[in-house]
């Protein structure tokens, strides 16, 4: 069978994957996963690169027509990268807001967030808590006032289905299906599955699958 994947940016066979492509993968994975994934440190690098690039554009401003055209292309690319960056960070903020209470109580989640995100999460939680308290909870009976009880906390559902593509041959894998029954599936390169996020969580971390 013919293989068209040589044109594929998601292919590992490409010797060098640029920061932009790496960030894009993180963005796609983040958008598709029900859980918060570890923060990609490339964000800061890319912000710096963007600044350098805009300085270069500025310094080339008054040169010939060719340079003007190249500047336009650079500018266009910068806008694209900024879009990915913004969307990546906003996707994460959306999840942080949703699971603020849960993150707050689980130190393991702190490792996945950047320093700024941790500050955001804590402040957001404080604000929401104090707002709820002031607006209604104060008048409720004391035993209903606790916001940190287990059933009050929204957790990421790891059983949610995700679509994923296998990036390398993994072979026979045991996944947990309904009612905890384990099922064996054969994961070969370029297979596409829809399954529970929980089942491929570790593979995603190792970069052996990607979400779609």
């Amino acid at each position: 069978m013919e293989n068209y994947n040589e044109n594929n940016i998601f292919n590992d066979e490409q010797e060098e994957i640029s920061d932009v492509h790496m960030l894009m993968k993180s963005w796609i994975n983040e958008r598709c996963s029900p859980d918060i994934l570890p923060y990609n440190n490339l964000v800061n690098d890319l912000l710096e690169q963007l600044e350098v690039q805009s300085e270069i554009i500025d310094s080339n401003k008054n040169e010939n027509v060719n340079a003007a055209f190249q500047n336009m292309l650079c500018q266009q690319e910068m806008d694209r990268v900024k879009f990915i960056l913004k969307n990546y960070l906003r996707t994460r903020l959306n999840k942080i807001e949703k699971y603020a209470n849960y993150i707050y109580q689980n130190p393991t989640y702190y490792e996945r967030l950047s320093d700024k995100e941790i500050t955001y999460c804590e402040q957001y939680k404080e604000l929401v808590d104090s707002h709820l308290l002031k607006s209604s909870l104060e008048t409720a009976p004391a035993f209903l006032q606790n916001l940190n009880e287990n059933n009050m906390i929204v957790k990421p559902t790891l059983d949610e289905p995700v679509f994923c593509r296998v990036k390398e041959d993994i072979g026979e894998v045991q996944i947990q299906g309904r009612q905890g029954i384990s099922i064996t599936i054969n994961m070969k390169k370029n297979n596409v599955f829809m399954l529970r996020y929980k089942a491929i969580e570790s593979f995603l971390e190792e970069g052996r699958v990607e979400l779609l």
Binding site: P161, I175, R178, M194
Partner: peptide, 23 residues
């Protein structure tokens, strides 16, 4: 079913189309 389904060679646009309903 609620275990898994295999959808080899399905494009991203096609996946996105069926995603809301399938999920």
């Amino acid at each position: 079913n609620s275990n898994y389904i295999q959808l080899d060679n399905l494009g991203l646009m096609e996946i996105n189309e069926i995603r809301p309903f399938f999920s």
